[in-house]
Amino acid sequence: MVTNFQIPPVMLTLQIDSSIPCISPLGEAIHSLCLYATDSTECASQMQLAVIEAINNIVLHAYHNRKGNPITVKWNNENRQLRIEITDFGDSMTAPPIPELAPWDAENGRGWWIINACVDEYDYKVVFCDPQNAGPETGKPVTSPEKANILTLIKHY
């Protein structure tokens, strides 16, 4: 007899600083979490790759490679769906770029292509938030602008 023990809906929040050495440990954490939830190394690797590409973009383009800014990653598993929400308070994009493959000899510009291929859905929005919420609990610096960029990555398994 096969009994399928379902993992109950779980939500976890991780937070890192916007510095490059923080990205890899976060990637490993995401990989482990996804592997735990899905039992599929392929799914876990793809989720890790998508999250790392997204965070590379945030560190380089939203925070212009400046340390000391928060990046929040909410990991959520429900109904055979992994949902990862990445929030930053840096410069916003006007819209998520079109996932087009860069010419082979380009040395960057593959990130969105990879994210698009690794997840089933993604969604980018800029929300304006209450500066009252700033503080150590929210991880939002008091001096931050009043908006947050939220990238949501969704993958079914």
Binding site: Q48, D105, R110, G111, I114
Partner: peptide, 16 residues
Amino acid sequence: TFIDSSGCAVLVAAYK
């Protein structure tokens, strides 16, 4: 064990 697009960029730069 893991490579991302910046790793790819290193390979492309080496190739060029």
